[in-house]
């Protein structure tokens, strides 16, 4: 056993997991609060990356690209919630899955029609180039910074969810949707805001990931499935679940890579199956919510 490699992979699992957490957060917020399983989540992530790319190409500012990606998706989320999703709150899960699945196809193919299938470049920001020597590991600066970005994002999200009225409603929605309705809260507007926020989180994740992965129309496909794995492992609809689930998923991929790299992805699914069989509500899930 190569110990330095083990430490390196453990650390890498952490940053890999942090990115997964970022991506999964939007999905879990929307599902938790609205009960909508958003299959367009991967497409939102992709659109975010493209919005960031366009903004970067115009301004050469990474910060503006991030803002553009998040803002674009807030807008997209709001338009889609008003135009489509709100008709689905009272319909079965399957219908929501289908509508958002179709929406995902439309977004992906619209981007492909506009930009082509060739991958676009959104480079690492100047403050993130190069690599840092961590002693046991030579690691890309940007990824270490991403760790910080994710941490800050999570703190902000935490404050929104646990320290604001909106967050209270969202969390109440996760616990008991009926209750929120009964309390006479302006559900309509709250749902709009939550869907917008969840979409924005996806777009934000898209831009942050763009310098690392390839920006192509199909980039969200894998992300969607991985996000599901993350939130199911952690517990659907749970803030802490998405966090822990993402980190666990990152470690699974990284540690499997030491032993049998080709198996790294399938191990995620195996882990999800095991968690579900042994602890159905996920590690942090609310029992009974299905």
């Amino acid at each position: 056993m190569n110990w330095s490699l083990l430490w390196a992979q453990l650390f890498n699992g952490l940053t890999l997991g942090a990115l997964l957490v970022l991506v999964a957060m939007g999905l879990t917020i929307i599902f938790g609060a609205l009960g909508v399983i958003n299959f367009a989540h991967g497409a939102f992530y992709m659109v975010g990356a493209y919005a960031g790319y366009v903004a970067y190409a115009a301004t050469h500012s990474f910060v503006l690209a991030v803002i553009a990606g998040a803002a674009a998706l807030l807008l997209v989320g709001i338009v889609i919630e008003r135009g489509l999703i709100r008709y689905y709150y009272r319909r079965p899960h399957e219908d929501q899955i289908l509508a958002t699945f179709g929406l995902g196809i439309i977004l992906v193919e619209a981007v492909r029609a506009w930009f082509g299938g060739i991958s676009q470049r959104l480079p690492v920001p100047t403050w993130g180039t190069g690599a840092v020597n961590l002693g046991f590991l030579y690691y890309p600066t940007y990824r270490i910074e991403v760790l910080g970005i994710v941490a800050v994002t999570l703190v902000v999200l935490y404050l929104v969810l646990y320290r604001t009225r909106l967050g209270l409603i969202v969390r109440a929605g996760i616990e008991d949707q009926l209750m929120v309705n009964v309390l006479g809260i302006n559900v309509n507007r709250t749902f709009l805001v939550v869907f917008g926020l969840g979409s924005m989180a996806a777009g934000f994740a898209g831009v942050i990931n763009a310098p690392i992965v390839t920006v192509v129309p199909d980039m969200g496909e894998l992300v969607l499935v991985q996000s599901f794995v993350v939130i199911v492992i952690g517990g659907v609809g749970s803030f802490w679940g998405a966090l822990i689930g993402g980190l666990i998923a990152g470690e699974i991929i990284s540690l499997t890579a030491i032993v049998q790299p080709a198996y790294s992805e399938v191990m995620l699914f195996a882990a999800m199956a095991i968690v579900l069989i042994l602890r159905p509500q996920g590690l942090f899930g609310v029992q009974g919510r299905q």
Binding site: N12, T15, L16, L137, L222, I253, A257, I258, P261
Partner: peptide, 8 residues
Amino acid sequence: ADYSSFLL
């Protein structure tokens, strides 16, 4: 999408 663990 992410090759970090293989690249290590």
